[in-house]
Write a protein that binds this DNA or RNA. Sequence first.
DNA 1: CGCGCGATTGAGTAATTTCAAATCTAGTGG
DNA 2: CCACTAGATTTGAAATTACTCAATCGCGCG
Lengths: 187, 187
Amino acid sequence: MSSQLRKHIEKITSLTDEEFEFVFSHFHSKKLRKHQYLIEAGEYVENSYWVVSGFLKAYYVDASEKEHILSFAMEDWWITDYEAYITRTMSRIFVDSIEASEVLYISLDDREKLCNELHKMANFFREKVDMGYVGLQNRILTLLTTNAKERYDELLLKNPELFQRASKTLIASYLGVSRETLSRLNG
Amino acid sequence: MSSQLRKHIEKITSLTDEEFEFVFSHFHSKKLRKHQYLIEAGEYVENSYWVVSGFLKAYYVDASEKEHILSFAMEDWWITDYEAYITRTMSRIFVDSIEASEVLYISLDDREKLCNELHKMANFFREKVDMGYVGLQNRILTLLTTNAKERYDELLLKNPELFQRASKTLIASYLGVSRETLSRLNG
DNA sequence: CGCGCGATTGAGTAATTTCAAATCTAGTGG
DNA sequence: CCACTAGATTTGAAATTACTCAATCGCGCG
């Protein structure tokens, strides 16, 4: 579990044993059964979560109870309500486990301390946001330029793993399309 | 011009005169007349631009020549193709001036040097991406949950300045709606 | 005055949603 | 091993939303 995290971080920046020990001491771990909340709308968001194993979703629930998926997270992905986390405000979204999951998490205070004391980790997190920003920008571009069918094909091409684990209803909600429409695309 | 930049940075982190002098030495300036490109699709993106004055747009042009606005930028905003900039790859989008504009810009190398030598600036840029990330996430949420009318109203509420300077055609393109549809909403 | 651009309006069409019903599937208990 | 159920998926049909293409309007500028 700790070795997985180390591997994850060392994709971006290499660490000595002592450094990793120090990094790891800032994390805590949590196990979730299926359908358990990590974050609920209306609550403060203490932590950012890194997925050791399992599968989760972050979603907004609109006025008519409909879920809109902001992101999924599987092994090696981060998930939280980033806005609420970094601005210390209340969440507007929910995050819960689709499958039984295990996560490592770090509080904002600990993350800041860690970044101040270990410059490499500041770089690590900066690169994570940079890439996250790029990903969101590309998703916006897709939402602006493509129809249901094109979005589906693009996701299938870029994130085939998702189709292994997420129901079609969830995929539809991620793509911003009704499940019925999605169901009519295949063929 | 330099004092405006200093003010911009000091909204996030305060600087001594010497520090600002040092920061400012990493920037260059450029003046643009109306309809002049800052970035063109297919080219590398050396710089990130901060707007001193004027009004610009960043947009993708799709297969049928249609423009899709990714972002606007006016006084005090940053604009570039962030993906191409940080990954040193070729741009997929265009950035050009809607009005005559003046910008200050910094290359990626200079930005990295600056961040390494002045930790405060690393924080400054980190906070900028953080906020940018949050903004994009919220835009995705809007695209997923709202129709043309609701998007228009939300933008009018959150960014009234835009309606002063951007044509309705551009606003429509930013919202992901045809100009005719947008035109039919009002009233 | 007339040109040109942006905005609006109209009419027909295409894409997507909604609501409802039918079908399929995996897991459970008998 | 089979019947049964809950949930997910698909299908159907009608309604809605938004798009496209075309024509017209409105206004600022030379």
